[in-house]
Design a protein around this nucleic acid. Sequence first.
DNA 1: CCGGTCAAGTGGCTCAGCCACTATGCCACC
DNA 2: GGTGGCATAGTGGCTGAGCCACTTGACCGG
Lengths: 233, 233
Amino acid sequence: MSEALRPMVKSRLYEQVLERLRAHVTEAGLSAGDRLPAERDLAASLGVSRASVKQAIVVLEVQGLVEARHGGGTYLVRDTLDVEPVEQLVERRKRLPEVLEAREALETKLAELAAERRTDAELETIREALDFMRDEIAEGANGVEGDRRFHAAVTAAAHSSLLADFMKTIAQQITESRTESLRQPGRPSRSLAQHTAIYEAIAAGDAKKAAAAMRKHVRTVAKVRLLTWVPED
Amino acid sequence: MSEALRPMVKSRLYEQVLERLRAHVTEAGLSAGDRLPAERDLAASLGVSRASVKQAIVVLEVQGLVEARHGGGTYLVRDTLDVEPVEQLVERRKRLPEVLEAREALETKLAELAAERRTDAELETIREALDFMRDEIAEGANGVEGDRRFHAAVTAAAHSSLLADFMKTIAQQITESRTESLRQPGRPSRSLAQHTAIYEAIAAGDAKKAAAAMRKHVRTVAKVRLLTWVPED
DNA sequence: CCGGTCAAGTGGCTCAGCCACTATGCCACC
DNA sequence: GGTGGCATAGTGGCTGAGCCACTTGACCGG
């Protein structure tokens, strides 16, 4: 435990920027959906380079606290930039099984409706999402954006604004489970295969088969997720 | 949920770099302590700018998977760059209370011994750690490095290689609880005050008071941490 | 009122370069 | 022999300028 052997660790610049950003959000009373100052402005007012500001924003991005839209600004996802306390994270995990049950009910019905009601244009959009996910995986990404698009396209094709609204209320939690699920080795390609099966059923107009395929898919995701949760000692 | 309204989200470049880095570590069979290629080399071989490589490395840094030493290269902390599965994280949380109990026992005794055995030079090192943490907090950081140095200095001043070895075996888990604890609002300054009390007792050679101050400090940390753990439904 | 166009604003990314720090090997000196 | 100092190359930290792609909103013509 000799001290002298350890390197001198100065805090990195981006960490200080992070602190200032958190403080700014708190002081300015910003809340979810509000826009952060532009990177150039932040760099100027903090007296650092844009690259350092960007590093800080990347950190906030991977922590899911901020969403940077190319050309459109950077937006707050929550009311604060503080990392979520473990307590709340555990709390949310406990509610997750319910969310996944709800998702199964909703998406199964959505797939069924989509098979019956989809227009050719909507079918095409679903297929594009499939292609997009395939490209993502080929590039080495996990396909999370393609996955999101696929489910969004199916939802749109079902032409049920009520079911779509329900989906919206659990969208955030679904996003989280999606990311975690697709991080499992081998998951992206298996998920793509299941999407393909759903697509084919919808393309064929086979409502029953589409519902079954979607149910199987959602249950797979739920299973992966539940394995990571240990409810008690 | 119309798809066309959503921005075209191409995966950010740094995310792709991240994937390639993970793959490289796996394929090259690198393990903890090994050095990653230099940023310039990575940028060249991946065909991206150094800024993008750096963004990816910053992500790995905040995830604790990598340690970048200014001028000395970037090193692997674990044998992999994959984020820790939630399952293992939960497992470790369950063991944490034991670790904190052990820490209380060890550090209390270490403080006591330090008060009796410390040399003037060692006392000076402890004071420097205190000053360092104060500066960190003044700069807006959370003081985690100063905290680490303080406890390391006290351990060294105790002149007990056996106790020091015991501390080493739980060092990793202590580091994690340290980081999390100091993230709580107001914690850094309160922690600094407790450190000061410990320092003064050691400086005065008051073993009993030093032990008591250290016990109080460690228990405070343990309390903060335990609040975040919900053992059952 | 609608739809198209255009300019300003913004994030994504690159390039070139300087600085601070580290690691290494060499060399003078003891 | 080895020990300490020192130069040098390598490396991460950070900057500034700049280009591109995309979004946004205002403006204008129909």
